[in-house]
Amino acid sequence: MCIAIPGKVLSLEGNKAKVDFSGNTVTVNTGLVDPRPGQYVLVHAGCAIEVMEKEKAEELLDIFADLEELR
């Protein structure tokens, strides 16, 4: 259950961010990180736990989709 999914930060407000996960926009707590709009964050349990490099995050999306299937 420690899975974390990368998503793209669309906008920030206080300690919350709107994050895009392949078309779904979700509000995420950003109390643990300082992302800028356009950056990717790794999100777990509604909480961004780290800021990621863009290309790598995009590369990861596929594998996580695959892993979901397997559950």
Partner: peptide
């Protein structure tokens, strides 16, 4: 509230909120 270190900070933030 189950979890390892990955999840613990989210619970703490929720409690602060």
């Amino acid at each position: 509230a189950v979890g390892f270190e990955t999840t613990a900070p989210a619970y703490a933030l929720a409690i602060e909120d």
